[in-house]
C-alpha cells in the first residue's frame, strides 16, 4: 500500500485561481520532501490530504483511506504541524500537548504520559511546565512538532517546519525530523520552499510548481543519474579537457574555469587524478557537485504527469 496516492487531483478557488491542477503522484513510505515556491500549492495539497479541504476534482488516498469520506480516520492516524503560529500563549506546554493528545483520542493517563515523552523527544523536557507564550521561536516550533507526534501517527505532515528559525535552529529541526523518520519509523512529508534543506534529510522528493507536478523521484536516483565531478586547475585547463576527452569518461563540459565530468563510476576520480598528475597540472579543486538536485529542478521544463516514487 502506498503512503499517499493522488489521481488527477485538482483544486480551484473560484473560477480564476487554480491551486492544484491534475496532480497525479504516488508516494511510498519514508521521508518525503514536498518542494515548491510559495504559492505552488503545497499547503493546499496538505489540507486536502487531511480532509480539511474538498478537492474540486480527482481523488486522493492517504494510508489507503479516502480523506473526503474518511476524514476522521485519516486525521486520527496523521499528525499535522501547520506553518503559521498556532499555539495559545497562556497555556503550559505539557497541558496543551496533553489536551491535544486527548482530542486525538488518547485516554487521559496515556495522553499525559505521551505528552511528556514527546516533549522529551523534541528536546523540551526541562521546559515543559512553562507557558508557551514565553518560548522562543525554536521552542514553539518544537511544541508544534510535539503536538503532531503525540498521538503516535503513521504519517506526519510538516508544513515549513524550519520557518523563522536561525541556521542552528534549522539544522537542529532537520536533524530531529530525520531522526523521527529513521529511528521512530514514522513516514514524514516535509513541505518546504528551500530545496537545499529538505534534500539533506529526504528519501524522495516531490516538486510542484503552480499546482502542477514537476517531478517526483527518489533522491538517490536523481543524484546518481546526474552526479558530476568538478575539476578546476589553475592553468592548463584546455590541455586537461583534451586529455579527459580522450579518456572515454563521457562528455566533458566547461563551466567557467571548471570542467565537469559525469560521475559514472567509482574509478572516475582515479582516472581524472592520474590525468592531472601525468601532466603535472596545479589542481585547484576536485569535488562532487552539491545541490545537483536544485539545478535539476531549475532546468526541468518538461512536465511529468505521472511518476512513481518507490522505495524498497
Amino acid at each position: 500500500m502506498s503512503l499517499i496516492a493522488t489521481e488527477s487531483l485538482t483544486k480551484r478557488y473560484g473560477p480564476r485561481v487554480t491551486a492544484l491542477a491534475d496532480l497525479t503522484v504516488t508516494v511510498e513510505p519514508g521521508i518525503i520532501g514536498l518542494v515548491g515556491a510559495n504559492g505552488a500549492g503545497k499547503s493546499t495539497l496538505i489540507k486536502i490530504l487531511l480532509g480539511l479541504l474538498p478537492p474540486t476534482g480527482g481523488s486522493a488516498r492517504v494510508l489507503g483511506l479516502d480523506p473526503v469520506r474518511q476524514g476522521e480516520q485519516v486525521r486520527a492516524r496523521v499528525g499535522y504541524m501547520p506553518e503559521h503560529d498556532s499555539l495559545p500563549p497562556d497555556l503550559i506546554a505539557a497541558e496543551l500537548v496533553t489536551h491535544l493528545a486527548r482530542v486525538s483520542g488518547l485516554p487521559r493517563t496515556s495522553a499525559r504520559e505521551r505528552a511528556s515523552e514527546t516533549l522529551r523527544h523534541v528536546g523540551l523536557y526541562e521546559e515543559r511546565y512553562r507557558q508557551v507564550g514565553g518560548y522562543s521561536t525554536g521552542m514553539k516550533q518544537r511544541v508544534k512538532l510535539a503536538q503532531a507526534l503525540v498521538h503516535d501517527p503513521d504519517l506526519l505532515l510538516l508544513d515549513e517546519p524550519t520557518n523563522g528559525l536561525d541556521p542552528a535552529g534549522r539544522d537542529a529541526m532537520l536533524e530531529l525530523i530525520s531522526r523521527i523518520g529513521t529511528e521512530f519509523g514514522i513516514s514524514i512529508v516535509v513541505c518546504s520552499h528551500l530545496l537545499g534543506e529538505v534534500e539533506r534529510i529526504c528519501d524522495s522528493l516531490v516538486a510542484i510548481d503552480a499546482g502542477r507536478l514537476l517531478r517526483a523521484d527518489r533522491i538517490s536516483s536523481m543524484t546518481t543519474a546526474t552526479g558530476v565531478l568538478v575539476i578546476e586547475v589553475d592553468e592548463g585547463t584546455e590541455e586537461l579537457a583534451e586529455a579527459l576527452a580522450g579518456l572515454d569518461v563521457g562528455e566533458v563540459r566547461r563551466d567557467g574555469p571548471a570542467l565537469l565530468v559525469p560521475l559514472t563510476g567509482d574509478d572516475i576520480y582515479d582516472r581524472v587524478l592520474r590525468a592531472v598528475a601525468e601532466r603535472d597540472l596545479p589542481l585547484h579543486r576536485l569535488d562532487q557537485r552539491h545541490h545537483r538536485v536544485a539545478e535539476l529542478f531549475a532546468t526541468e521544463t518538461t512536465e511529468t504527469t505521472e511518476t512513481t516514487v518507490t522505495q524498497s
Binding site: 486520527a76 503560529d85 498556532s86 491535544l100
Partner: peptide
C-alpha cells in the same frame, strides 16, 4: 476569541473532530 487569535483551530481541525 482566544482560539481564533492564536490559530490553535488548525490544530483542532487536524484531529478527529469536525
Amino acid at each position: 476569541s482566544r482560539d481564533l487569535r492564536s490559530g490553535v483551530l488548525s490544530l483542532y481541525f487536524s484531529r478527529p473532530l469536525r
